[in-house]
Amino acid sequence: MTKSNPLSKLLNETADLFLFFLRFFRELTHGRMEWTEWINQCFYIGNRSLVLVSITGFIIGLVITIQSHPSMAAFGAESWLPSVVSVSLVREIVPVITALICAGKIGSGIGAEIGSMKVTEQIDAMEVSGTNPYKYLVVTRVLAAMFMVPLLVVISDTIGLYGAYLGVNMKQAVSFSLYTHQIFMKLTYSDVVPSIVKSFFFGFAIGLIGCFKGFNTRNGTQGVGAAANSAVVMATFVVFIIDLVAAQIADIFSIT
């Protein structure tokens, strides 16, 4: 048996992922949408990640503020702390951290669930029952992730800004109204909109990769673990690639 070359393996996997991506669009635009399953998946995805994303958002807001304070104070720019922290949280830190958490929680969950359905022939059973498994399992999950990740980012942004408020108040007394005034003086649509738009792509990538890995599960239950694991690794990597591309696009269109 010939040992497969890692480069050809990578290229084959990329080609398979691209074909899976094309099939997603074909299934999305043909036939009846499984709305009930989509709502169920929105609930599972949102519910599964909400607590973790909220706590993480709060801690990040708090920690970033505490760590930024000495540098800002050294330049006598303490009053700029809420504005600087809010922009960095909303534009970059919260969307990326939320996407990474979702890659772990949602990506692995979808990969393991579909992988387990694959090895126990549940996907075949679905097909025999007259249900298109791509439509029922893939389209619903990808759209649910695409819809819920931006929502989780908005929630995490809000909680992160509360965390930052607490951090600011640990060093100096600032009223909540002054704090929010300072934030909204600096935060603009060009900070918020690109962040939400890239979160849609994060959600899409996480959902698609989770489904792709699940659908291509091999080697029984051992393969289910491998599918979940590689879904997380690949989704994490793709999140960073999307973030890089989004930063370049924002730069080209001067949304900075």
């Binding site: 387990s116 359905m117 126990t120 022939e121 549940q122 075949d124 679905m126 025999v128 007259g130």
Partner: peptide
Amino acid sequence: DQLRVDVGFLFQSNALYD
């Protein structure tokens, strides 16, 4: 899909949706 209405399939692993 229409033909599959007339053909039942019992899977080796049962394939019940867990």
